[in-house]
């Protein structure tokens, strides 16, 4: 396409947006809202996935040791744990370390901490990591039978549940995103249809004098893409501000929830939202033109 034709298309689409300003604004805002909801879902899904992965990577089997077990016995348990199939790492947690961790979680509950600190009731433990989740349960069972072991914990149930929830939300999010995408296409298509209708004489003359379909289509597609992009810009700004704020709030108030930092997450999301806006706009306007271009 020649540059003059490109300019012609841009001029035409601006003219369309101006003539149809209120409707254009309304549909850009609708696109913005839809993309905002889609983006929110995206952020939630990505963070839940992140949490689930973290949780899985964390302590898989915790083996608590009897306080009366001598150091020699502790080393024996460690050796036996390390020898088990699938075990990749065994970390020792002392009574002091366990207490420190508790302090970090209950930093505000001074009374409880004071009481606990007087006589540390926490067990020494080993944190056992396995290469695959399937090894967790056999490892836990075997560890329970070792000499000097009081109790074995493993959080497979919790992790499974977390993954199930993540999967459900991901499916729901995907369904909602598809519905939203269809809605956006329809809204843009409808807005462009109004422009097309207002310019039907012009389109008729274009066809009469031998303009190609591509040439006729381009200003309208351009207009649709501008609408989509404008909506995407709104949505991106809102998501950017909202997530930065939420992230800060969580950091301050709920520091044990490891939300993903804003970067590079938001940049990626912005690119994705912008792309979706453009695609949705182009598809929407192409749809509204199909009927008019048929000879």
């Amino acid at each position: 396409m020649r540059s003059t034709s490109l300019a012609f298309g841009v001029r035409q689409s601006l003219r369309g947006l101006r003539q149809n300003a209120l409707m254009s604004l309304a549909s850009a805002l609708t696109v913005a809202l839809s993309l905002l909801v889609a983006g929110l879902f995206g952020l939630i899904i990505i963070n839940l996935g992140h949490l689930a992965t973290l949780a899985e990577r964390q302590v898989e089997v915790t083996v608590f040791l009897n306080d009366s077990l001598p150091d020699q016995g502790v080393r024996a348990v460690e050796a036996q744990l390390k020898a088990m199939p699938g075990v990749t790492q065994v970390d020792f947690v002392s009574k002091d370390e366990a207490l420190n961790r508790l302090k970090a979680v209950f930093a505000n509950d001074k009374d409880l901490l004071a009481e606990v600190e007087q006589q540390n009731p926490l067990y020494r433990s080993f944190e056992v990591h396995t290469d695959q989740p399937e090894h967790i349960q056999p490892t836990a069972e075997a560890a329970g039978k070792l000499n000097g072991v009081v109790k074995v914990n493993y959080k497979q149930d919790l992790i499974d549940r977390l993954f199930r929830v993540t999967r459900a939300i991901r499916v729901a999010g995907l369904v909602i995103m598809v519905v939203l995408a269809l809605a956006m296409v329809m809204i843009i298509s409808n807005t462009i249809r109004i422009t097309v209708f207002a310019r039907r004489h012009e389109i008729g003359i274009m066809k009469l004098v031998g303009a190609t379909d591509g040439f006729i289509r381009w200003p309208f597609v351009c207009e649709g893409m501008v609408l989509g992009l404008a909506g995407a810009a709104f949505a991106a700004v809102a998501l950017w501000a909202g997530y930065s704020w939420a992230w800060g709030a969580v950091q301050r108030g709920l520091p044990f929830i490891p939300l993903l930092p804003g970067q590079p997450l938001l940049t990626g999301l912005t690119v994705l939202i912008g792309g979706s806006g453009v695609v949705v706009g182009a598809v929407g306007s192409a749809l509204s033109l199909r009927r008019f271009l048929r000879v």
Partner: peptide, 8 residues
């Protein structure tokens, strides 16, 4: 001019 513009 329109007829020429739209036929590029």
């Amino acid at each position: 001019a329109f007829a020429l513009e739209v036929t590029e």
